[in-house]
Nucleic acid binder design. Sequence first.
DNA 1: CCTGGAGTTGTCCTA
DNA 2: TTAGGACAACTCCAG
Length: 480
Amino acid sequence: MKSISIHWFRQDLRLSDNPALSDAAENGKILPIYILDDVNSGEHKIGAASRWWLHHSLCELNKSLLGKLVVFSGDPMELLPQLANELSANLVTWNRAYEPWRIKRDTKVKASLEREGITVRSFNGSVLWEPWEVRKNDGTPYRVFTPFYRRGCLSAEPPRRPNKITDSLDLYEAKNLKNGYDSIAKLGLLSKNNWINGLENTWKVGETAAKKQLLNFLDNGLNGYKDGRNFPAKCNVSRLSPHLHWGEISPNLVWHAVKDRLSSSLVGDDDCDHFLSELGWREFSVSLLYTFPELPRKNLQPRFDNFSWKTNEVLLKAWKSGQTGYPIVDAGMRELRKTGYMHNRLRMIVGSFLVKNLRLHWHHGESWFWDCLVDADLASNSSGWQWIAGCGADAAPYFRIFNPIKQGEKFDPSGSYIRRYVPEISRLPNTYLCSPWLAPEKVLKESDVNLGVNYPKPVVDVKVSRDEALAAFSALREQK
DNA sequence: CCTGGAGTTGTCCTA
DNA sequence: TTAGGACAACTCCAG
């Protein structure tokens, strides 16, 4: 009788270039499982939009596995040893995860399996460089991106080439275990939220879709990426973030696909290098979270603990619902709510607005994004918010405050992004599209805009709030 | 050991 | 109209 191994799928919902799955395949029969773990995740329980994604991704994975994926909900600490004993499995494999709570959990799971005499092997399936390997010469972690990436990553061993897809998986038929679509549905990942339709109309989920999106990006987005990535109405960004987060595609596959284009000289070197460095930012975030497990909650720069944040439910609600009266901000926030995604340029604009103009704590932004993003990732989300708030590693300088009017005019010059998400002002001419309150009464009337009625007046004065923020940030310096 | 230069993403004022 | 400097402090690294 062939030996049986369990492959525990987590953030590696794919068959190709999956090191842990390949390892299990060499051992014999495989029982592929997924465990929804809301027990150990604590305050980082998967958010609503991400649950939607996860549901569909599991369905796709199950299809690829011919309906033989077995899913559970509960504590892997209890489930895995039990299951392994029941099947007399001799091996459990998984690809490593890097969030602090997962590391803690996996360490315990591994120990308890090994106590039962079961072999556990874990692999790198999610990052290009292991976070503990990227270190300065003195052994300490980097706190600045450029040396981290150039010296720490680029001058190290290059990322491995993706493995070929394992052609035949010998899947274990677990007759007494429930599998298939019904059991995925029973995880209850889908909520009745009204934005689910928007998600369905925006995304194709799963490994096949991820590969297709990569090709689409290579053919249509990569050329001109360096500049085009700043314009939300253009199609230069990859939109791979949710696929990468859930491991529907490996970063190695993406990395080498872009590298190959680079050597084919079909696209500009600058464009390729710039995109690769964005993958570098993903690595930097993972590394930061690995090194500073408190990153999601604690300011990396402790002097920010005394910052004079405001408390204002009305302003927070206006921000969340895309009703600030600043069209570019509202467009971004509505894109998020509608599609579970926000263009990178907009993440900076709305982040700067929340933290600097409204002066509300970055935690509010972080947790709203966590719930709304299909690509919500603990490392990227918390390091991103700390960056924009100025309290993180290699953070934005305090005086870098985005002006929502200028940013709109500069990066959405045709106004098509704003018009798509803020239709009630779509008839305003470009001159006033980013600042409707400056439009003459006559123009407003002709455009069917009634400020304060069908579109809000600005919730704060951008000039006044900027000055106040600068003062607040200066106070922080003096006090130190 | 010291020293100097450089560092994702901006804005405003002045000349 | 446009270009340049100010707006900090700190981290990293090469020389």
